[in-house]
């Protein structure tokens, strides 16, 4: 009698003791979890190869502004910032696009571009770091990779055989090119999802604080653009600048992050960009 009761109680306890209920219990050992996908070395290689193709396409539209000194300067800042972000396996590259439009782009795999027009509107190093940090965020949070579900192709011979039996069509190549097209569309036409943009803004503030820059860098830059009425030029692929400024203000208040005028490095910025 005692035994039966014990078993019954154990069974009940056992069935009900789980604190977290995640529908993830269906996932079998052969399936990668949300947290594991996109992260194998092959996936990252696929991401870099993809990013290069996408970058080549961006550069086909806006060629590089080939000033070695300034390019080196933004790489020093960008790579420094990247150290404080969470993707040590990515080799970041920062380039300047030769166009007067005001914009910045990032491609998966670590390729980040800022336009000459954008640099002209920036007044100090913290603002530049803020813009670069926002782009680094898209890469760290894998916004494009997740949106297009970019994974390394599974090239084991067994898969080829299985795909033959199971009737899947299309080769990795055709799929790859479609992905590049889709990513280009996100960058130049559709824009990132609004949550992804806000999320990258918040990331930028955090990254600025961690790396020792004035956390107000990005918001200051956006405010100035708004006041100068330069909004139209970037609106297409970013959510409204006013919403972004408000979102950033709220975020910094909630997180008790305050500005630090001492960490703007304005003089170095003027010096390196040849401004007087």
């Amino acid at each position: 009698m005692g035994l039966k009761r014990f078993i019954l109680i154990s069974l009940i306890l056992f069935l009900f003791t789980n604190i977290t209920y995640s529908s993830d219990f269906r996932r079998r050992a052969s399936q990668a979890s949300e947290e594991e996908i996109y992260k194998t070395e092959d996936d990252i290689k696929a991401e870099v190869i993809f990013g290069r193709s996408l970058s080549a396409r961006i550069l086909g539209r806006y060629p590089l502004y080939k000033d070695k000194d300034i390019t080196e300067y933004i790489n020093l800042i960008g790579k420094g910032l990247a150290q404080y972000a969470g993707r040590p396996e990515i080799e970041f590259h920062f380039g300047i696009l030769d166009t007067d439009t005001i914009n910045a782009f990032s491609a998966p795999g670590g390729y980040i571009f800022i336009t000459k027009g954008c640099l002209k509107e920036i007044e100090d190093e913290a603002e530049l770091a803020g813009v670069l940090a926002h782009e680094i965020a898209h890469i760290v949070e894998r916004h494009i990779v997740k949106e297009i579900n970019l994974r390394a192709p599974d090239e084991s011979p067994l898969t080829g055989f299985a795909s033959l039996i199971a009737g899947a069509t299309g080769t990795a190549e055709a799929v790859f090119t479609t992905f590049v097209d889709k990513a280009y569309e996100i960058l130049f036409e559709r824009g990132y999802k609004i949550e992804d943009e806000f999320s990258s803004d918040r990331f930028s503030v955090n990254l600025l604080k961690l790396s020792g820059y004035d956390p107000y860098g990005l918001i200051r830059f956006l405010k100035r653009l708004n006041e100068k009425g330069k909004v139209k030029e970037i609106k297409g692929t970013h959510p409204g600048i006013v919403e972004r400024i408000q979102g950033l203000k709220r975020f910094m208040e909630e997180n008790q992050i305050s500005g630090d005028d001492k960490k703007t490095r304005k003089e170095r910025f003027y010096e390196k960009t040849g401004r007087k």
Binding site: L64, G80, G95
Partner: peptide, 20 residues
């Protein structure tokens, strides 16, 4: 597809320690 410019960019080497 402008791979030439991309390769120019990739040749600019900046070490992580120097950036820090």
């Amino acid at each position: 597809l402008n791979f030439d410019d991309l390769e120019w960019l990739e040749k600019i080497k900046v070490e992580d320690e120097r950036a820090l």
